[in-house]
Simulated assay, not measured.
Amino acid sequence: MTDSGEDGSKAFDVVCVFVLSITAVLTAWCGFESSKWGGEMSIAFSQASGARIEATAQEDRANSARQYDLTIYTEWVRAVQDDRPALRQYVEDRFTPEFRVAFDAWEAGGREAQGPFKMAEYVPPGTREAAELTERADERFDQALVNNQRGDDYALLTVLFALVLFLTALSQRELATPMRRALLGLAIAFGVAGLLIMLTFPIKI
């Protein structure tokens, strides 16, 4: 009877050590993954910020080009109103290539639009680049949020595994055998649940 009790106690202790060891490894792994995804989050946020800065620079470039075209177009309108063909031609020769495309389309359309600037053909330099960079910044920002959530998910698992360690350690206290077994069983249940959840998470090495 005594030998049986001692064997049962030893088996219980072995299971406790096994649970503690595995849980310690899983906790360390979760900490590692949380750190890696935190790093990926920082990189994505940095890339998003860089793209935003570049997009702003391209938008300034487009606005400057638009302002220049507007100034030239204003002079063209004045030359037309004053009926000065020579000045009109002089101004037209100074149209930028981007404005020239829109102006020609406006002329071909019978000048029905409210001006060349309303034409779809008018795309000042920097406009497309700004749109592409803004889209890239939005994508990297969204990815950063995803990476942040992944890091948080792994961090939350460390809390669950800490509970497993706590319950396992508690089961080794001098308590009634049914209580010790119940605590260990609960610890194993939480540990298995945590492991199954962890297997659904993406891994970053």
Rank of each mutant, 00 (worst) to 15 (best):
E135I: 00
T71R: 07
G5D: 13
P85D: 00
T2I: 14
A144K: 04
V17S: 12
T71Q: 08
G185Y: 03
A79I: 01
A44I: 03
F32V: 08
A113Y: 06
A108Q: 05
T23E: 01
E121N: 04
D3Q: 07
F166W: 06
I203N: 14
A28W: 06
Q67F: 01
W37L: 01
E33G: 01
P116Y: 01
R173K: 14
D13P: 06
D69A: 08
A86C: 05
G151P: 06
D93R: 11
E174Q: 15
F166V: 12
I203F: 12
E98Q: 14
E121Y: 00
C16T: 10
F141Y: 15
S64D: 07
F95I: 09
F161P: 04
G126R: 02
R61G: 07
A102N: 02
A189L: 10
A108R: 12
E129N: 10
N63D: 09
Q58L: 11
I197V: 09
F190H: 12
T74P: 06
L186Y: 03
F32I: 08
R61M: 13
G185M: 10
I203T: 14
I43L: 10
P97G: 00
I205L: 15
W76S: 03
K10I: 11
W106P: 00
S9L: 12
A51I: 04
I205W: 15
K118T: 08
I53L: 08
V101Q: 06
I203R: 15
A11R: 13
A57V: 08
Q81C: 02
P97Q: 00
L133T: 00
F18L: 09
T71L: 01
Q114F: 11
P125A: 09
R66E: 06
G109I: 02
A130I: 07
Q58F: 13
Q149A: 12
R88S: 13
E107W: 03
M198D: 01
A44L: 01
G194T: 00
E135Q: 10
V77T: 11
E33F: 00
P116L: 03
A11V: 07
S49G: 04
V14K: 15
V15W: 10
E174C: 15
D3V: 11
R111Q: 14
